[in-house]
């Protein structure tokens, strides 16, 4: 535990920097804004207390918000995602449950599992985020298209990121 905290802290900072300085400036054809900082919430240990999950999600979201000048938008979406995480983990749990000393990452549970896991949560996050950004339901389908395209793009980026850890099983 004591070893994982600094690692996650570093992770946090790197993800925020990556999001704020690189990905926030990317906007393909007005539809695609990838938000991959949520991978931090995805990869938190299984044993993380639920309340801590929400608090961390709020801190992460509000940090992104502070940098992108959208106070409350990312934090509410990220908290929503963190709220869903325990339920999603329950639903897609492998038959013999999660082993101890493992983390919800691609290298432990395989590509299919991780794809399902991240797809559901990232989609939920983006759905919440984009709808709270437009704050109305009148352009429902245009927004939905943005949600689908952006979340697919984010998921792809997250998966690619996961493959960087692939061989290094002793990392954590």
């Amino acid at each position: 535990m004591s070893k994982t905290v600094p690692r996650y802290l570093l992770n946090f900072i790197l993800l925020v920097l990556l999001q704020v300085f690189v990905l926030n400036n990317i906007q393909f054809s007005g539809y695609i804004n990838p938000y991959i900082y949520v991978v931090f919430i995805l990869t938190l240990p299984f044993e993380t207390p639920k309340w801590l999950l929400l608090v961390i999600a709020f801190l992460l979201g509000i940090t992104i918000d502070l940098f992108s000048n959208t106070l409350g938008m990312h934090s509410s979406a990220t908290v929503f995602m963190a709220f869903l995480r325990p339920f999603v983990l329950n639903i897609i749990a492998p038959r013999d449950g999660y082993e101890s000393e493992t983390y919800p990452q691609l290298k432990y549970y395989g590509g299919t599992w991780f794809l399902k896991y991240s797809a559901i949560l990232v989609f939920a996050h983006h759905l919440f985020l984009f709808y709270i950004e437009v704050f109305r339901f009148s352009d429902f389908f245009a927004t939905l298209l943005r949600v689908i395209l952006s979340s697919s793009f984010s998921i792809i980026l997250i998966l690619i990121g996961q493959y960087f850890y692939r061989k290094d099983t002793k990392r954590f």
Binding site: L54, V55, T70, L71, G72, M73, S75, S76, V79, F80
Partner: peptide, 13 residues
């Protein structure tokens, strides 16, 4: 937290 976030959102944007 959601109420807090959304009130932040509504207050600041």
């Amino acid at each position: 937290i959601e109420i807090f976030s959304i009130s932040l959102l509504v207050d600041n944007n």
